[in-house]
Amino acid sequence: MNSHKSFHLFNYAFFIVLSLLCLLPIVHVLAESFSSNSAVTSGMVDLWPVDFTLDSYRYVLSKPELYRAFGISVERLAAGTLINLVLCVMIAYPLSKEVKSFRARTFFAWFFVFTMLFNGGLIPSYMVVRYTGLLDSIGALTLSNAVNVFFVVLMLNFFRGLPKELEEAAFVDGAGHWTTLWRIYVPLSTPSIATIALFSMVFHWNSWFDGLIFMNSPDHYPLASYLQTVVNVSLQQLMEQGDLNNLVEVSDRTARAAQILVTTAPILVAYPFLQRYFVKGIVLGSVKG
């Protein structure tokens, strides 16, 4: 009894500390974004705003670049997630069959797993995008990440967990693989599809590096790449240009804080709505697999 109690105590303490570790940085950034720049620079802001002001939000939201980048991110998210999902389902279905009914299954399984372990690296990826003519287009961001093998494995395990009798019954009634997949399997797989959708959305929203490399102008950057360029400024380059006004802007941490929050807010908001599927989906896939 006593040891049970102390375990609970320890457990609560541990998780409270853990969640504070995750939460405090966000609260700090939040406080910074609502404070005056001079208070932030002189290190007076911890978890509560000092000299409360909305100036930095006014400044950040007045930038047309932000809206443009936001639009591109939404486009990427919509197209990218859809492509991910469709391809994932269509690859997972045949791979979930047994070798008996799909003779080349082992080969194809390894074909996909191989890409999980090895990839060509930056330059070859760039060349592929370059020579497929996708450079500087939304296709570079969506098609170059069209299949995520991790998602496929997750989906595949889920499909295997579904009762085989369903499929057999469908075949008896004259359905082919195509119908079985879309009319039986997919409707039954909403938990794992939601999970993968969430993974995929977060991935597309957060990835920034491909935007920098594949897009030819900052005008075409998705939000995450744009944010990276705003938050990570090079003092060296500004020094070189000797522009004093730019230097002043660099020390403007409030605007950066506001920018971080504005860009992460949408995905933070989407999270809770999808989270219940998320947990269920992963567990279902793994246990029954």
């Binding site: 370059r130 920098l212 900052p218 360029t229 380059q237």
Partner: peptide, 22 residues
């Protein structure tokens, strides 16, 4: 402009460009 990049990622982008001969 063939391409432009923000100050802090220009070097990376140029390295890719140099490596691919573009």
């Amino acid at each position: 402009y063939d391409w432009t990049a923000p100050n802090n990622s220009y070097d990376q982008k140029l390295s890719v460009s140099m490596a691919s001969g573009e």
